[in-house]
Amino acid sequence: MELSELWFLLIAFMFTLFFVLEGFDFGVGTVAKYLGRDDYEKRVYLNSIGPFWDANEVWLISAGAAMFAAFPHWYATLFSGFYIAFVFMLLALILRGVAFEFRGKVDHPVWKQVWDWAIFIGSVVPPFLWGVALTNFMTGVPIDQHKEMIGGFLQLLHPFALLGGVMFTLLCIVHGLQFITLRTEGELQERARVASSRFAPAVLLALLAFAAAGLWKTDIFTSHGTGWIALPLLAWGTLLLSTILNKKKRNRLSFLMTTITIIALTASVFIGLFPRVMISTLGAANDLTVYNASSGDYSLKVMSYISLTLIPFVLAYQGWSYYVFRERLKGKDQLEY
């Protein structure tokens, strides 16, 4: 395996972890305002992701920085090309981050209402935009022979991309609701479980439509052979299984299934892209690939040594923090937000 291929794999791995982990805290942030009937209940929902969301988000930052370092052209083309989309996403992430911290600082209903909205907007916009972005990775975007992407923001919002956005938002909501069932108990847990099953038909339908459109409009699911259609099928199958398990109150397994759904979905997109990193609609000669967009071997080698040493430690202590806060939230004394 070439080093640039290894780095494609590592970046795909970071994005996958970002979608899985931040996916549920996006979901929780989206539903908390509606699922919690009073301030105490909302706080319980927000506290369920309290110790985790910040570190989850670092997977995005690390993925972005890794792109910058390992594939400067990918980083430059993507972030300058999807400019306005990233402006909206960053505004949302900024708003959301401070909202978690600020919400509980003043005990006034209007204050809390404002930050509840900030948390909602900040949690619903990023998964939507990531859905849009992922779809555009699949369809390709106009990239000229100088590796520059041309065209504006609205061009990214074609119907298939909007479907991708809606699908991914719904998926995060269900994933988040399943997470809530693991961190709460009693009435609050039950409400999340019921809400999850209400969302289930919509998300199943959206994912099915998305996979069908992807198969019809792009080569992503079949670029390495038709056998790889198994991945989107696995994503849909596990989502269905999650719905059934949720009905049977098998919460852990149900959460595991939505986790696999997101992994399979992300994997199918990145595998389908490979060896391309960005597809050009202006001809395959303009595609950015792991070979023509990457850094030099020396730089990749240095980063490989360092990253492959660090990542196990990161996974270990991040995993440990989940273990520390494994208990379900009960009583007011465990709430910090």
Binding site: V58, I61, S62, A65, A66, F68, A69, A70, F71, P72, H73, Y75, A76, T77, F79, S80, K147, E148, S295, G296, S299, V302, M303, I306, S307, L310, I311, V314
Partner: peptide, 20 residues
């Protein structure tokens, strides 16, 4: 982006390591 393309190889790794 022109800066990023030009120096990503040298400048990017510090940022990536900072993240991790």
């Amino acid at each position: 982006s022109t800066y990023s393309r030009f120096v990503g190889d040298v400048f990017g790794p510090s940022l990536a390591i900072e993240g991790l």
